[in-house]
Simulated scan of single mutants.
Amino acid sequence: MGYEKVGYARTSTLDQTAGLAAQERELCAAGCERVFVEQVSSVDLTAREKLEEAIAYVREGDTLVVTKLDRLARSVAHLLELLDRINAKGASLLILDMGIDTGTPTGKLMLTMLGGVAEFERAIMLERQREGIAKAKAEGKYKGRKPTARAKASEVLDLHKTGKGATEIAEEVGIGRASVYRILRDAESA
């Protein structure tokens, strides 16, 4: 039994199908015998069924192939979690546009270094953000994020009085359903 290259392609539902087709072509050109494809946002990790199927499918010696890193993981922590799962199966990860293959010592080193750099950059960015907020607060310029949903409370309550449901209200007003429920709950307890 030979080793297999298994492809994974993803676009968000907002992307065009042309992007998905391009990924599939690249994966097939890279020698993938089977390609798992889905259109789902990277932030909705619960809906990434095909990624789960792809990881479940790979066997020892196989390689999971993606065209770009952002097609696979949404953060360094998520990437490392996926990489641990792939490694635990005795498989490796190949990222085509970066030329990184974790089946090689150099590939493992490069991915670990890139992950570390990304994590470091994020920590520096968050530190600068905290410093900027502290400075703005000290100068009396920082007010925090404007509460968008609560600003629309009267509109939500008016629509609710007409008999519309929370989902319909949320879509019409442009806020989340949870915010609609919170506004209604607050109005009832007032």
Rank of each mutant, 00 (worst) to 15 (best):
T13I: 14
A22W: 01
G61R: 03
S12P: 01
M113Q: 15
G2F: 13
M125P: 04
L69R: 15
V156E: 00
L126E: 14
I86N: 00
V40E: 01
S92I: 01
P105W: 08
N87F: 08
T106C: 10
C28T: 12
R150H: 11
L51E: 00
L109N: 10
A136H: 13
M98S: 03
S154W: 09
E4W: 08
R48A: 02
E127S: 14
E139H: 15
E33R: 09
M113Y: 11
Y142H: 06
Y181F: 15
V40R: 02
R185D: 15
L80M: 12
L157D: 02
A73Q: 00
R145H: 15
Y142N: 14
Y3K: 13
A190C: 11
C28E: 12
L111C: 01
A56E: 12
A149G: 10
T13K: 08
K68H: 04
L79Y: 04
L93T: 01
A73D: 01
R182W: 05
L184H: 04
R59S: 11
L184N: 02
G99Y: 05
D186F: 15
D158M: 10
K141D: 09
V156Q: 00
K68A: 14
A18V: 15
L109K: 09
A138F: 07
A166V: 14
S12R: 03
T112H: 07
L157W: 04
V180R: 00
L159W: 01
T106G: 05
L69T: 09
N87T: 13
E171F: 04
V66W: 00
L109G: 15
G132Y: 15
G115C: 07
G144S: 12
R25C: 05
H160E: 12
D84P: 05
P147D: 10
T17Y: 12
H78S: 05
G115Y: 07
G2S: 09
A138K: 11
A149I: 05
L51T: 04
S189T: 10
E119G: 05
A21T: 08
P147F: 12
I124Y: 11
K146W: 14
V173L: 05
E119W: 02
I100K: 04
I100Q: 04
R185E: 11
G31D: 06
G174F: 04
Y181A: 06
V43M: 15
K141V: 11
K143E: 08
S189L: 09
I169Y: 01
A56R: 10
D70H: 05
K161T: 06
E53Q: 12
A153L: 13
L96K: 04
T11S: 03
R34W: 06
T104E: 05
R185L: 10
M110D: 03
L184A: 05
L114A: 07
V58K: 00
T148H: 15
Y3I: 15
V117M: 14
E172F: 07
G163Q: 14
G132L: 08
A29D: 09
A136M: 08
R128H: 13
A149E: 06
R145P: 07
G103L: 09
S179I: 03
H160G: 15
V65S: 02
I124M: 11
